[in-house]
């Protein structure tokens, strides 16, 4: 007999109130259930000190982790999405965009910045899952394209941090063509021999995986990140059997040969900075 009983079954928190990054005093690790001080968690790069679970974080946190003294110049900071198709499902795309902008304080699902990492130049394009599931539409594609052009112009190495549910359906074929656009620019960069590091974080799926995320000179990932092309539910429904343990995790993707290594977020900056040095010298 328990002391407390739930009045209502299941989770009743509405989606809007769910938080990606903990901002209360305490934080409960979703993996090992340890209770941590939010302040400590932030200092530990949002990695659980007990079980090394990597919490989902956004561009703000990654920029802070990577750039020296959190100093960087953001590129194309004000670019927002058009609504070329006037798309309407249960809600109009334009109002979805407005809501996402208000809720997250972001303009779209990716931010680009140039800064120094241990004194070396680096351009970082970082996705934000909070913004419509980190979906790739025209803004994500265009910002990556311009980020690549900026890297090419100055011959700075590029890092793209992926975190995405895939293409943005509300932009239909426009979003599909962003796979082409980003890969076209990477083809140019490839020929000009400027290093590109692709970091895949939880989750990296769909059209994002099938374009820039898998096209790094180095493809790396955070521990436990879900990485795949088709979603696990779709695969399960198609083949009508259970998926193997660890399927589509960074660890499996490393074993099947599609990653160079897995990096703990607490070592991310040092590792990237070492690589840039190795490429440069």
């Amino acid at each position: 007999m328990s002391w407390f009983k739930r009045n209502k079954e299941g989770i009743t928190t509405s989606t809007e109130q769910k938080k990606e990054v903990p901002d209360g005093m305490w934080f409960k690790c979703p993996s090992c259930k340890a209770t941590l001080l939010t302040k400590d968690l932030a200092e530990n790069r949002y990695v659980c000190s007990d079980c090394s679970y990597h919490c989902r974080i956004g561009s703000e946190e990654y920029f802070e982790i990577l750039f020296d003294h959190n100093e960087f110049t953001e590129l194309d900071a004000n670019m927002t999405s058009g609504d070329p198709l006037q798309f309407q499902d249960t809600k109009s795309y334009s109002s979805r965009l407005k809501d996402a902008i208000n809720k997250t304080g972001l303009k779209d699902a990716l931010r680009t910045a140039h800064g120094k990492i241990n004194g070396q130049d680096l351009v970082v394009c970082c996705m934000d899952f909070e913004f419509i599931g980190g979906s790739m539409g025209s803004v994500v594609g265009e910002k990556i394209a311009r980020g690549i052009d900026y890297s090419r112009k100055h011959r700075y190495p590029l890092m793209i941090i992926s975190k995405s549910g895939g293409a943005r359906m509300m932009e239909s074929a426009f979003s599909l063509m962003q796979m082409a656009k980003t890969s076209a620019k990477l083809a140019l960069m490839h020929d000009e021999k400027i290093p590109y590091i692709s970091l895949m974080t939880d989750p990296t799926t769909g059209g994002v995986t099938a374009s820039y995320a898998m096209l790094g000179d180095l493809n790396i990932a955070e521990p436990g990140a879900m990485i795949g092309f088709a979603g696990p539910r779709v695969i399960k429904e198609t083949i009508k059997r259970d998926l193997p343990k660890g399927f589509q995790t960074a660890e499996t993707v490393l074993e099947t040969g599609f990653l160079d290594f897995i990096v703990d977020r607490r070592e991310l900056k040092e590792k990237i900075s070492t690589l840039i040095r190795l490429f440069a010298n």
Binding site: M179, L215, F229, A230, G231, I235, T238, I239, Q248, T256
Partner: peptide, 15 residues
């Protein structure tokens, strides 16, 4: 969308 395809790098092949 299958297990083997994912393991053999469906996304990488398309990209």
């Amino acid at each position: 969308p299958g297990i083997e395809g994912e393991e053999r790098g469906q996304a990488e092949a398309i990209a």
